[in-house]
Design a binder for these strands. Structure first.
Lengths: 251, 251
DNA sequence: TGTGTGTTTTGATTCAGATCAAACCGGCAG
DNA sequence: CTGCCGGTTTGATCTGAATCAAAACACACA
């Protein structure tokens, strides 16, 4: 056991580390908002990133209709974004993981357009939008990178439109698995085996399918030797085979 | 007939007006990028907006894969955006009209992600992205408004995901007609009768439906007294009835 | 250890929209 | 005027995914 003073010192140190988001030390910095900034710029950025905020599984980071004042960088965990329609029908519009930005939908109207719900206990860095505006006027690279992140969200969504508009059920599900795989890989996790954070129903909602269809496709892929599935744990056995599902479709 | 000098003067004036995009005089300024800027800021903006460019019906403003260097404000005309998939399948991801911005998909990767094809002879103001970055650091309102336009594009697309993911065919088509109607209305055109610029097939592609399904829905709406259709000319006869189609769906 | 609740799997049946097919319409070149 | 062509309408049939139904399973908690 450490001496009392030292223990207190360490604890104080920890508290400070939590108060400051410390982009400079974050292992997600290359994927996140700070990507491409110099060390000096990183420090400037750190001054505006607020205390991290913890969101428990099932809780929302924000909800549609709430006033928008910050965007959020996911530090750890996993979220779904969900839009609810007037008549109560809803759709999952995306899944987000570490290093990705949530909340950009709110800038346009000053009001969030969707709910962001944690699918596991998560932590985010909140970035007050007014500060981001100011700082991106000063830091050239920050402005550029922020624009890129918004643009990529536009491109991502048009990819989903493609999924929903032209692909058949099995193609959508193969594309979904490959997308998750690729993003986990980019974060240093295994791209070939992973734990799905969402239910079959949430996958279905995202892909415009019913949960039974998702389940059947998983079974089919398993029977065809492409994956193994044990509840939410998925192993990709034949990556190329999975890719072929939507690459080699026949018309 | 005017005296020669005067005629020349007028003509010179016209040429200048064409060389300069003259946001300040544009009747779309409230919908377009300059929205909310002061007169002084408008003049600054004008210095960066390049000569207008004319695009004939059927031609592309840009194509997927081309390097991105400018965004475009539509001055007149009508465009579709189209994403083509590796295997040749494609989908229309949006229709754009006067005052709307095209090309924001290219910022993320520096490469355009889709084709923008004119559906009628059109004119755009091209805005070099590098200049826009610089200027939005100087003009506070420009930065804010540009972010808003990107954010709205994100929200628009998640609306389309909703269309594609959860609505049935007739709901999608009703929503489509109401959307066109609303946007034309905002531009001072009649929201109750208009000329569709796109084919049934393009509508279908956008909505994830086949052209026959679009045609059948139009016929059904006509039979139900909601609209009249003569080729591409549509009149909305019962606006509320059309709204009820997707508001009052039964599950 | 049992009991309840939410999730997943699998099977049987139905149906909305796709596909296939044919006719039609308007515009336009020869 | 005639024939062609892209776009559209309409009808008949087919099919992929939805729906309905039931059982199996996992997990939390008393």
């Amino acid at each position: 056991m450490a001496r009392p003073e030292l223990a207190r010192q360490q604890s104080t140190h920890l508290v400070l580390a939590e108060l400051k988001a410390a982009c400079a030390n974050c292992n997600l910095r290359e994927l996140c908002l700070p990507a491409g900034l110099t060390n000096e710029e990183l420090e400037q950025l750190d001054t505006m990133v607020n205390v991290r905020r913890k969101i428990k599984r099932g809780e929302s980071l924000y909800r549609a209709g709430e006033t928008f004042d910050a965007i959020y960088a996911i530090r750890s965990g996993f979220f779904k974004s969900r839009v609810t329609y007037e008549d109560g029908r809803d759709q999952v519009t995306g899944f987000s993981m570490g290093g990705e930005i949530l909340g950009m939908d709110g800038i346009g109207q000053g009001i969030h357009n969707c709910d962001a719900v944690a699918l596991e206990d998560s932590e985010v860095c909140s970035i007050p939008y007014a500060r981001l505006e100011d700082l991106s006027r000063e830091i050239n690279g920050l402005q550029r990178h922020f624009h890129k992140m918004m643009s990529r969200e536009i491109v991502r969504e048009s990819g989903v439109m493609m999924l929903l508009g032209v692909m058949r059920a099995e193609e959508r599900i193969a594309a979904f698995l490959l997308n998750i795989s690729q993003r986990l890989g980019a974060r240093g996790y295994s791209p070939l085996e992973f734990h799905l954070r969402m239910t079959r129903e949430e996958i279905g909602s995202y892909l415009g399918l019913k949960l039974e269809t998702v389940s059947r496709a998983f079974s089919k892929f398993h029977a065809d030797g492409l994956i193994t599935v044990d509840q939410k744990f998925v192993k990709i056995v034949d990556l190329q085979g999975l890719k072929n599902i939507y690459a080699h479709h026949v018309t």
